[in-house]
Design a protein around this nucleic acid. Structure first.
Lengths: 231, 231
DNA sequence: GGACTAAAACCACACTGTGGATTTAGCCAT
DNA sequence: ATGGCTAAATCCACAGTGTGGTTTTAGTCC
């Protein structure tokens, strides 16, 4: 008796109507691998195993691993729900930024790296892009300013989320014992400003930081648009 | 005659004074691998080969590959030259940001990923941190504000540089043919603001974008510090 | 001089991405 | 109908990866 594995190990093209593989099916399987076992275990072979399929079969639908990662990033980002515009530049920019954050951080934090680590602008669905630009335009900005503003905002968001994800992975900064240890380390060095700010440097509330930067940027946008329109 | 490879393949501890390996030597070798053949070829084995040494010997000085990457990132960042303060918040913040950018982008662009991809704040030498905080404090900001401001600035810088590096790797956006292709693609879609901004979306001058965002942030900082001091 | 340790090498494992060749099933033109 | 063509699956194989465990040597301290 030969060892017939239970996976349908037939050689040629599958009968019509029930071909298991497709780009979408692969992306979905990859997502479930990430959700169950983490990003670091994701590989062509683990995805293939989950589908009960030969690893090389994936290459019929996905160019290579990098393309698969791009696909996943796009998938995550495509789930962003673009908020309805309320009218004010400040409110709408803020709402869009939080919506982006929610989409990127949904699921395992390590999956967010995929989104943030490759050029977001390129794989962003056009809907959120239009929403962001429209917000600027409605407030009276020029197209050129809108693009610059959008890119500034996106850079801030990317950087902030990346920090959030990375620090969450390396050390548990929520642990108060470690926090006080860091604080003491910062106080025992010969740098006056670092000493004075040690309390605030030792901990980091990511949501609060996000809000701070966002508020600063949104205010600056409003202010700039006013002066731009005035001339 | 046995096959004695020319690399000093002696088994035990090396004679005193000439032990080839050390944490610094390893980091240096890793840097030269990156400079010569790119980040993607960097591995424990390639570094070891460059030193004419067994791969496992590296583990006597470096915990694992991730620690080695951290070391390289720290090394790159430690070469940042902190500018002398000139006095105004705007000038000094800007100068520090550009200095950071210069340090991160020195050498192969792919090496910058290492710096940006792990928690910068944690591996930053304390000197630039002190400089940035001092700039805020001199302008009259509270320590708390200084930390928030610094984190906002750092998030923006990180995001901007990451975009710069990633887009440089994926597509050559300096190619004018590709640029017009992108522009036409953006114009042929049914989204008014995207259409109107297609010209600006199709290309991206990274230095200019960096300057725009930086100016916006620096202005906002100055403005905020004034209002904060006033109450 | 003997115990101990630091720093090197060697052996080995499980795993990765993917190039190339083979096999089958459906499709299409004659 | 039949014969070629192609799409989609499989198997085989390779070079390369990080690193756990063991062995060997050279220096160091009592």
């Amino acid at each position: 008796m030969t060892d017939a594995v239970q996976t349908s190990t037939r050689r040629g093209r599958p009968p019509a109507g029930q071909s298991l593989l497709s780009r979408d099916a692969i992306l979905e399987a990859a997502m479930s691998v990430i959700d169950d076992d983490g990003v670091e275990t994701l590989s062509m072979r683990t995805v293939a195993r989950r589908l009960g399929v030969d690893p090389k079969s994936l290459y019929n639908h996905v160019a290579n691993k990098d393309a698969l990662l791009d696909g996943i990033a796009g998938l995550i980002l495509s789930r962003m729900v673009v908020p309805e515009p309320l009218g004010s530049l400040w409110e709408d920019i803020t709402a869009i930024a939080w919506a982006f954050r929610d989409a990127a951080l949904a699921g395992q934090p390590r999956a967010a790296r995929l989104v943030l680590t490759r050029p977001v602008e390129s794989l962003m669905t056009l809907a959120p892009l239009e929403a962001a630009l429209a917000t600027f335009i409605r407030a009276g900005a020029s197209s050129e300013f809108a693009v610059h503003g959008l890119r500034t905002l996106l850079a801030f968001i990317t950087g902030a989320l990346l920090r959030e994800v990375e620090t969450a992975l390396t050390f548990a900064q929520s642990d108060p014992a470690e926090a006080t240890a860091r604080q003491q380390a910062l106080e025992s060095v010969e740098l006056p400003c670092v000493n004075a700010a040690a309390t605030y440097l030792a901990t980091c509330d990511h949501e609060q930081e996000f809000e701070f930067g966002l508020r600063l940027l949104a205010d600056a946008f409003e202010h700039r648009v006013c002066t731009e329109r005035r001339r």
